[in-house]
Design a protein around this nucleic acid. Structure first.
Lengths: 224, 224
DNA sequence: GCTAACTTTAACATTTTTTTAACAACGCCG
DNA sequence: CGGCGTTGTTAAAAAAATGTTAAAGTTAGC
């Protein structure tokens, strides 16, 4: 579940947002004090921060700056009161990702939260590259020359195992254990058959393997 | 034409609002009873709701709560009598978007209606399009070629989940957890059965799925 | 309590994937 | 260079997963 840290000294607003977030399936953490909020942010590493600009203890601006300085890239939405002089440029400079002006509708806030999370989270994806192929582990998507290609579960599992153990000779037993699991005991040639398929699908020239190499008498070795 | 559902037990006020809305190009539907109003809301899926707080059958507060609980996000304006204790925060919590205090001028009411519709309809309103279908999440309404089509609750929930997680392979477990909830453990084939139904209702050609794709060995993937 | 609508399950058909077996090709070693 | 074990390759058998349908089980509303 995604944690959202809310730092605002207006108690009723804080609670309202808390209830709203809960309803929408987030885990809200509510804090009134600026300094306490900053510490919670560092500790909890929430998926999103809602920060009031005007705060006791430590201003919203300061919180943003410090977090960014600490290499914390949590998306931040700034809540600003209508009177505050809000300069978009300044907000961007201090590392905020979006802002809403109080009073705001709950739907607007939710829309912003959703949009921001969608906008920021995909970047955390782990994407492997080698040869002209790209493997997006989260999406289970593999593409070559930008064209999506289909891998079967066994192929995909084998590929991820190779990706996680590059440059190392891997015996068929090791591969069977890690990829197929202990309970199944297929013929060791099964591994060979699947390596062939990976080569066919991923090697620039399947007849001259450059990434899925054979280690004669041992097994296989993957070089990125 | 935009439908506005008015739930108020004061007949003369109800009629006044009805005439006003008609003049302004809306399609008013007038109801006196709270429970009846709630049912009409679920059935008609109006673009806007005007709800009196004090109602026979079912209170305005209850109507708002229930609608929101049913994932119906139609904008709601609460009509409150001058004596009612109205707490903005409570109104927000129960899911109301705005309120006016009786007695109010027709121009004020209209202004609020217009403002709220403007605020909610263009961008904040989540309307998904794919193939020749349109899904209005807020109104829980699905149409194909402009014709409304009926989805059962399970189908709708599943669709919503797909819409909110596009392009990502979703395992049956993930789907069961998110759509059916933790407490229920139906056969995994339940998901399959419902995917079939969604395909039948929404795919241009159900035999060649282009949006509800199966990821063999994993689950399903929705591409808009 | 009855009906109608919906959900779940079970059964069977179909599709996709995995494994195996067979043979060809290769590499190492004398 | 020739033999022997290893690997490449392929197609078919076997297994697993999914599609589909209808019947059984639930639930909600009257």
């Amino acid at each position: 579940m995604q944690t959202v840290l809310v730092i605002d000294d207006d108690e009723s607003l804080r609670d309202t947002i808390g209830v709203l977030l809960e309803q929408e399936g987030f885990r809200p953490v509510l804090v009134a004090d600026g300094r306490e909020g900053f510490e919670k942010a560092m500790l909890l590493k929430p998926e999103l921060l809602l920060v009031d600009l005007r705060l006791p203890g430590m201003s919203g601006v300061e919180i943003c700056k410090q977090l960014r300085a600490a290499q914390m890239h949590t998306p931040i939405i700034v809540l600003s009161a209508v009177g505050d002089e809000v300069d978009k440029v300044i907000l961007l400079e201090i590392g905020a990702d979006d802002y809403v002006v109080k009073p705001f509708g709950t739907r607007e806030l939710l829309a912003r939260i959703r949009a921001l999370l969608r906008r920021t989270s995909p970047d955390a994806r782990k994407i492997f590259h080698f040869a002209d192929a790209e493997i997006d582990l989260d999406r289970r998507a593999v593409s070559k020359h930008g064209e999506e290609l289909k891998l079967t579960p066994a192929e995909y599992n084998l590929l991820t195992y190779f990706l996680q153990n590059p440059d190392r000779p891997l015996t068929r037993d090791m591969i069977l254990n890690s990829v197929w699991g202990y309970q199944s005991f297929p013929n060791t040639r099964t591994v060979d058959a699947h390596v062939v398929k990976l080569r066919q699908k991923l090697e620039p020239d399947p007849n001259v393997p450059r990434h899925f190499l054979t280690v004669h008498g041992v097994g296989y070795r993957f070089v990125p």
